[in-house]
Design a binder for these strands. Structure first.
Lengths: 198, 198
DNA sequence: CGGTGCTATTGAGCGATGCTCAATAAGACT
DNA sequence: AGTCTTATTGAGCATCGCTCAATAGCACCG
């Protein structure tokens, strides 16, 4: 037991290593909150030494920034399957979003709710949010939103997050009703914020 | 410099010490996110040793649980000055809430947005949210809310948080318009969620 | 005023964690 | 076979949360 098998080193493609490590980060986020994930655990899971992780990501923050970005891309694809430029139907968007959270709510909460301004994760999460607001503006057919409208949609995203997460956890009502509430509130909020600018 | 003055020890009232430490925690949360606050820093600010902090709070988590509870009480008082049982006017509530965030948005974000489910802070923050939902139900005159209505109001709180924080930071529009948006969206969301149960 | 007990307070130290640095060795290319 | 790049590692450091045994204010009692 005391003698460890020398275990022949294997050199891997750096790109593959990065992908592997980010994948492990995503998977771990589904099991525990971010601040409970240690570099040691990730390295152990990957079968490498701590030091190698720092070779690819100069800092733990840099590592998790990549992880969060990757998760953000996944969510955007789930909610806006039509792609970056072509607008999706609002029904599809709300449904895709809710479905994503249903399947991945552990991951999602670990990512985007566990951030505060000043926090290093906040800026990364904000990138994804900004893209979601842009996509929502696109599906709503709004061309030149007033700042207040952008702010309202951004805030509505928080509303949607909380509502979907709560529903995924406690199921307070029918799924279709949640979707109806999402769509109705978004339209109402935009209307209120936009009407304000007159 | 190498010799430290023995510096006569001073015994303080435990209750006062606790208050002092919690106060320091609240103040520090206005400057940096929670996970960047070390026990050493708090102890140093108070002029005591790390060990003494652990004498009053068995764990860092216990310490910050107290801090978060204290902040929650402050916020509830700001938003619902009428008190626990008598209902306030919705106009007063939204205004009090927004004013609180205007004055204290660094603190507020540090507290309630930096939590994820599974996180030990989440349960504490949730206590305050539950109380706010109850108060809001009271001011809205809703007696027996359907689960969906409670969920909707809880989610609206996230909406309000995000909107107010964004407004405090970037001022996208007039203050009165924010208040109107808050009131209007709340009424609409409740209506949508309630109508769903028919 | 002196002794006694309670406990607020402390220093030394431990394990874990994020991170650094110099050294090793796998594999590609002559 | 020899050389060069760089993926990979072990040893070690500073900080952080936390424990434990010891010290010393201060109140109370005689």
């Amino acid at each position: 037991m005391g003698t460890t098998t020398p275990q022949r080193r294997q050199r891997h493609d750096p790109v593959e290593r990065r992908k592997q490590l980010i994948g492990i980060g995503l998977q771990m986020l589904t099991e525990r909150p971010l601040h409970e994930i240690t570099v040691d655990a990730v390295a152990a899971q990957a079968g490498i030494s701590r030091t190698l992780l720092f070779h690819y990501f100069p800092t733990k923050q840099d590592f998790y920034a990549e992880v969060v970005r990757a998760a953000g891309r996944r969510m955007l694809r789930a909610a806006f399957p039509a792609g970056r430029d072509s607008p999706s139907e609002l029904d599809d968007v709300t449904d895709g979003y809710l479905s994503f959270i249903e399947r991945r709510h552990e991951l999602y909460t670990g990512l985007f709710r566990g951030t505060a301004p000043g926090d290093w994760l906040h800026d990364i999460a904000q990138e994804t949010r900004t893209q979601m607001v842009d996509q929502l503006l696109l599906t709503l057919g709004i061309q030149r939103p007033a700042p207040m409208v952008r702010a309202a949609i951004g805030a509505w995203l928080s509303f949607a997050e909380e509502l979907c997460l709560d529903w995924a956890a406690h199921r307070p009502g029918n799924r279709d009703r949640v979707l109806a509430l999402l769509r109705g509130s978004l339209r109402n909020v935009v209307e209120l914020a936009d009407g304000d600018s007159n």
